[in-house]
């Protein structure tokens, strides 16, 4: 994130690998607020993780409307999959307490079953018949 454009796409740009992580960062962990799994802060590709790879739940730490830390600190559930122009998947999270939305990049070791379930969920319950689109 550049200094001159602090807000531009800060929710959609995937966070790249940390250049040279300190030993403390390399070994630091957090506990998932939903399933209690102890998760390493850095993912397998060296980028910051912000959701549990097992249940994909996150915690509302950052306040995106005003910036800075949030005092909500509630659980955030994954609600949908967004696709960037380069084909990367992002998980959209929704806070269970204040309904704020965030998006974060998918990690390599995230639970593929939950990811696929969220991706096909709209097509499993369509609000209109999908047969007509077969002719297009």
């Amino acid at each position: 994130m550049s200094i001159d454009k602090p807000n531009l796409h800060h929710r959609l740009s995937p966070t790249g690998p940390v250049a040279d992580p300190s030993p403390a960062l390399r070994t630091s962990t957090f506990t998932c607020v939903r399933c209690g799994l102890t998760v390493a802060t850095l993912g397998p590709d060296g980028s910051h993780r912000n959701h549990c790879p097992s249940c994909l739940h996150s915690q509302h730490i950052h306040d995106h409307v005003e910036g800075g830390p949030s005092d909500c600190r509630s659980r955030m559930t994954p609600i949908s999959i967004a696709v960037l122009r380069n084909g990367d998947w992002m998980v959209v999270h929704r806070c269970t307490r204040c309904d704020e939305l965030t998006s974060s990049p998918v990690c390599a070791d995230d639970n593929q079953l939950i990811l696929m379930r969220m991706a096909v969920r709209p097509l499993a319950q369509p609000p209109f018949p999908l047969e007509v689109f077969g002719d297009m």
């Binding site: 807000n7 531009l8 796409h9 800060h10 929710r11 959609l12 995106h64 409307v65 609600i79 949908s80 999959i81 967004a82 696709v83 959209v92 929704r94 939305l101 965030t102 998006s103 969920r121 709209p122 319950q125 609000p127």
Partner: peptide, 25 residues
């Protein structure tokens, strides 16, 4: 940006702001 589904099967559109990156449903 993407499509989300509620528990009762309602589709929700997730919008993202092109200027500041804010999301809304």
């Amino acid at each position: 940006l993407s499509m989300s589904v509620r528990e009762d099967g309602e589709w929700m559109i997730i919008h993202s702001c092109l200027s500041c990156g804010e999301l809304s449903a």
